[in-house]
Amino acid sequence: MTLPVILAIGAVGVGMILIAVVLDRRARRARIGRPIDREVLRVDVLAAIDRNDFVEGVRIYRRATGAGLVEAKEAVEGLALNRR
């Protein structure tokens, strides 16, 4: 491959990453301020835990609350421990 082709492919890749970051930030901002039904969230997360899908439980929590990864992981762990 020639250098211009390699550079063009790299530029497209960087552009796609930037677009993904911007869209993710917009989605998170849209969730802020939206009311959360805590009981529905709890049931959904516990259902994921019952399926032995801890990662999905964290994903559900993050989507619903906009929490960071560590915060969501700790919250889901807390739900799992309180259930036992």
Rank of each mutant, 00 (worst) to 15 (best):
I32F: 12
N52W: 09
I19P: 01
V76H: 00
E39I: 08
V43N: 04
D37F: 10
K73E: 01
D53R: 13
L3E: 12
E39K: 14
L69Q: 08
D24W: 03
I6S: 02
A20W: 03
I6P: 06
L41H: 10
R26E: 10
D37H: 14
E71Y: 02
D24I: 04
G57D: 07
E74S: 03
G57Y: 03
E39Y: 08
G10R: 05
V43K: 02
R83L: 09
I9E: 03
R42E: 08
A20Q: 03
D53Q: 15
F54E: 10
V21I: 10
F54C: 06
E56K: 14
R59W: 08
A27Y: 12
A30R: 15
E56D: 10
A48S: 05
V40W: 09
N52T: 12
F54Y: 12
V5W: 09
R84L: 11
G10E: 07
V14Q: 11
L79F: 01
V45G: 01
K73R: 15
I60S: 02
E56Y: 10
G10N: 09
L41I: 11
I6F: 08
E71C: 02
A75E: 12
L81T: 11
G10T: 04
R59N: 04
I6T: 07
A67L: 00
L18T: 06
I17S: 11
E39Q: 15
R51F: 03
V5H: 14
G10A: 11
R62T: 02
I60P: 00
M1Q: 05
D37R: 14
I17K: 07
L79Q: 03
I36D: 15
R28Q: 14
R38V: 12
A67S: 10
I49Q: 05
D44T: 03
A48L: 07
D50E: 09
L23V: 08
D53V: 08
K73P: 00
V76Y: 01
A67Y: 00
A67E: 01
A27M: 12
R59F: 03
V55M: 11
R59T: 10
V70T: 04
F54I: 05
I49L: 11
R31G: 13
L18W: 13
N82R: 11
I36Q: 13
L46R: 05
V40D: 11
P35L: 14
R51S: 10
R38G: 14
V58W: 01
V58Y: 01
A8M: 03
A8C: 04
G33K: 14
V12Q: 11
E56T: 12
E71N: 02
V12W: 09
L7N: 05
T2L: 12
T65D: 01
I9M: 06
L46A: 02
D24F: 06
G68S: 07
P4A: 14
L23I: 05
L79C: 05
V22P: 00
G66Y: 06
E71T: 04
R84Q: 11
G78M: 00
L79I: 00
R42Q: 10
V12Y: 06
R29E: 15
A67W: 00
L69T: 07
A67P: 00
A11T: 13
A75C: 06
V76P: 00
D50C: 07
E56V: 11
R63M: 04
R84K: 09
V40P: 11
G10S: 07
R42G: 04
A75L: 09
P4K: 12
M1C: 09
M16A: 15
